[in-house]
Amino acid sequence: MNNIIETEGLSKQYGNVYRVKDVDLSVPEGAIYGFLGPNGAGKSTTLKMILGLTKPTAGAITVFGKRVNSKNRLENLKHVGSLIESPSYYGHLTGAENLRIFQTLRGVPKQNIVDVLKIVRLENQQHKKVSQYSLGMKQRLGLASALLGYPKLLILDEPTNGLDPAGISEMRELIQSLPQKFGMTVVVSSHLLSEVDQLATRVGIIREGELVYQDSLTKLHQYSKQHLAVRTLNNEVTKAFLSQNGVTWEAEDDYLIIPQMRDTRMAEISKALGQNNIGLVRIEERKKSLEDIFLELTGTAVSL
């Protein structure tokens, strides 16, 4: 599968602090790439570097298989739509006039304005001044501007920020429909795990400027598979016993966390423990939540 975006050692220094450090992003064609990280982790900075709005301190960026430089930047961006941090708009003009400006500058057909207004469901508000739009409407107008040229790649930086729950789910459905409908590859950043979980096919997690996880969403879910927690009268002896029998363990409070296993295997182990006079007092099934994993990866509590 082709990667639409690839970065290599992408870094950005502000002052003497690296706010983005050695990020190797890979966004496969047709993916909805969820770029997840707490506020201030470096999501916007990374996306701005990909768009050439901010100059990287180090590293290389490849988009559509071409290494990006200041000469071919705009040529490449013809096929990229973006919405960074907050929508760009002229408040004193109407929604349609706003789109007219970006459509003219992009040199794409006028008909696209009508089409994207329909996609984001703003047809009925298009003749209202944007300064009178609600935040959700502005956000949708921002998405419409990004969609104007039917780009192959869409970069959306926290597009649901500040929306109410209904607006969030509407925006999510909209984004989700884009790859099938228009063959777009979408990068969408968020600080909300639940959002990425519901939207993305591939996930990149950034923490303090470093990419700490990057793989499919399915893989991330596998980390959250079930475990067993056992408690015995003598956990110290149990640890040694488990190790001898090739069972990995992790101590957690009064419990030892061991991998999920077949019933027959567990029966063998409990029998062996009894024979060694180690009283087995509890066996529980435990599930590590996605939130716990996110917390471990980013060191930040999930905000829901």
Partner: peptide, 17 residues
């Protein structure tokens, strides 16, 4: 000021030089 208020430079600069 319309460009600053609407934060349009970051979009314009992805479209024209």
């Amino acid at each position: 000021d319309v460009e600053h208020k609407g934060q349009t430079f970051k979009l314009l600069e992805t479209i024209i030089p």
